[in-house]
């Protein structure tokens, strides 16, 4: 198997964490993984993206020209990466911030109102976990239980309550697939 995922949005939306959890979960499953951030003179409110590869074989290039999946947390990200997604690939769209429809008709599209659900849960910051939950449910790239484990490792400094909230967000997102 080979999943090449681009995750993109505003800086501060937790884009890099989405990628890291997919990579960590893949590693826990004994797969080969790589996580590559875009980096630059960027800050909160700017653009952020990362590329994650989960593979049963050695990961060659960490740079991906045509990802099999795109998680777009805002409209500029969809505009930038939509055309690059492979045919029959997956595009997960944050419907709360993206008003337009996906133009491609040769990919699978899932629309998730990630910010609205996060607000319902009482914390806008978990919108990233909502959309990640949807991606995991749709792609089955890695197992949700391993995303939970990765989350516990990544948020070890956070309170139990915070980890529980993130898990809840993942589960709510997983209903969209």
């Amino acid at each position: 198997m080979l999943d090449e995922i681009i995750i993109a949005g505003f800086g501060g939306q937790g884009i890099l964490l989405i990628g890291r959890l997919i990579a960590q979960a893949g590693m826990l499953e004994g797969k080969q993984v790589s996580w590559m951030p875009s980096y630059g003179p960027e800050m909160r409110g700017g653009t952020a993206n990362c590329t994650v590869i989960v593979s049963s074989e050695e990961v060659a290039s960490p740079v991906v020209s045509n990802p099999s999946s795109l998680i777009a947390m805002n409209q500029p990200s969809l505009d930038k990466f939509e055309s690059l997604v492979e045919k029959d690939g997956i595009i997960i769209v944050n419907k709360s911030l993206i008003s337009r429809n996906v133009k491609r008709d040769d990919v699978e599209v899932v629309e998730v109102p990630a910010n609205d659900i996060a607000n319902e849960l009482g914390n806008l910051r978990v919108a990233n976990m909502v959309i990640l939950g949807s991606y995991i449910a749709k792609s089955k790239s890695v197992k949700m239980e391993n995303v939970f484990r990765a989350l516990e490792e990544a948020l070890y400094r956070q309170s139990e309550k915070m980890i529980k909230l993130n898990k809840e967000a993942l589960e709510r997102g997983a209903m969209f697939c």
């Binding site: 890291r20 080969q32 993984v33 790589s34 996580w35 590559m36 951030p37 980096y39 960490p62 740079v63």
Partner: peptide, 10 residues
């Protein structure tokens, strides 16, 4: 290079 330095792998 910067890519190797910034990326994560097992």
């Amino acid at each position: 290079d910067g890519l190797l330095g910034q990326m994560m792998e097992p």
